[in-house]
Design a protein around this nucleic acid. Structure first.
Lengths: 216, 216
DNA sequence: TGGTTTACAAACGTGAATGTATGTAACAGC
DNA sequence: GCTGTTACATACATTCACGTTTGTAAACCA
């Protein structure tokens, strides 16, 4: 019984959703395509029609969340008139907060950090991941090196060290919270968790964001 | 051809070493006991004699590094006459530095962070891991709350937030460096990476460790 | 409206990994 | 020196997941 194009797309997302759930519960390599198909209400035939194999399915799943994330990061390099250090801080805080608000993001990051092994078959996914991370670090490092920022860094903090420590904190908080969502409350605590670090990075880091200067 | 007791122990460590190497290369669930056995120069019979199954083998492998780690952490709660904040800082720096010095530790942590999925069969391992992490966080939180420390924390930094952010940084640096050992040099950079954070945590964090007061 | 292609379902063949059961030679104790 | 046990090797049975192939009804198009 052939479906219409919309129905086909519907089963595609059903497969993706089922995979997401099962990967989260049982781990990527312990989840079989048969289980995914059954959970999506189809057979393995449908899975193999929409995706080449499990690795491609996994890749497609990650794309749902990586693409918007990359856009968000690129926005930093533009960074209009406002303080780029505050923009960076807001980006970090927002990233943690969004974990609590966006259930799909939470699931997918939990899978990425705790439920998959980066081995040969996922090597390509790992590479793209590494590229994104390196771009982020390079961007932050370059941001810290800007004339308006560099002189605001604490003594002894180089752009290189600052970028790497900040990314470490970001990744660590992602890892910790996805492992145990009870460890802290993203909405309430994210700002404080990063402000600790920014106070170590930036001289005279304000305790609270000062009001924006009135735009004439 | 039965072996003597020492020889038997020798094959046991050979199996553990082979598993360590293969888990690192191919991921835990993508490594078969047959491959481990061949790499160790034995057959699956030997593996099943020494270990109940792959999960128990994995568990035994982790014990090689977790047990000394737990001792190290517990030493913090004692924390003799010296400044407990500096002791904590040294513990963190030393943890990162030891990654570069101890190859086995580096391999096992890489496996833990990037080459295994915490699923049903490793649930027990995951639990013990979580217990250790929670103990570490609780210990740091309690340390920050001590009379001699609490008043040295920066305004707005609670023991709760301080402990969680510090652990986040620690985990993130582990994760980042095991993913890409070229990202920074543990020996050269570990101190700077943590000092950024400690400056955000503690008031008047010294740029360099001042000489210890002369012991009378 | 008839042929073509789509979107799957069902069936097939295959290799591989697991756990267990059995065999066996040598060590360790008496 | 005999025996029970150890430290494995070998053989076996079973299950399971994968990839491919074939079948098919319905949608899409001319």
């Amino acid at each position: 019984m052939r479906r219409t194009k919309e129905q086909a797309e519907q089963t595609r997302v059903a497969i993706l959703a089922a995979a997401e759930q099962l990967f989260l519960e049982k781990g990527v390599s312990h989840t079989t395509l048969e289980q995914i198909a059954r959970a999506a209400g189809v057979t393995r035939g449908a899975v193999y029609w929409h995706f080449q194999n499990k690795a491609h399915l996994f890749h497609a799943m990650l794309d749902q969340v990586r693409l918007p994330l990359e856009q968000l990061t690129e926005r930093l390099s533009g960074c209009g008139g406002e303080d780029p250090l505050w923009a960076l801080r807001d980006l970090c805080v927002g990233a943690i907060e969004s974990l609590a608000q966006d259930d799909q993001k939470r699931r997918i990051f939990t899978i990425l950090l705790h439920r998959c092994e980066f081995t040969d078959e996922l090597r390509e996914t790992e590479q793209r991941n590494a590229v994104f991370i390196n771009q982020f670090i390079a961007l932050v490092e370059q941001l810290f090196g800007r004339p308006g920022c560099l002189d605001r860094l604490q003594d002894g903090v180089t752009p290189r060290i600052g970028a790497r420590s900040l990314h470490g904190l970001l990744v660590g908080l992602f890892t910790d919270w996805t492992r145990d969502p009870g460890l802290f409350d993203p909405i309430r605590d994210a700002a404080a968790l990063f402000d600790v670090h920014f106070r170590g990075l930036v001289r005279d880091w304000p305790r609270r964001r000062q009001a924006a200067p009135p735009t004439p």
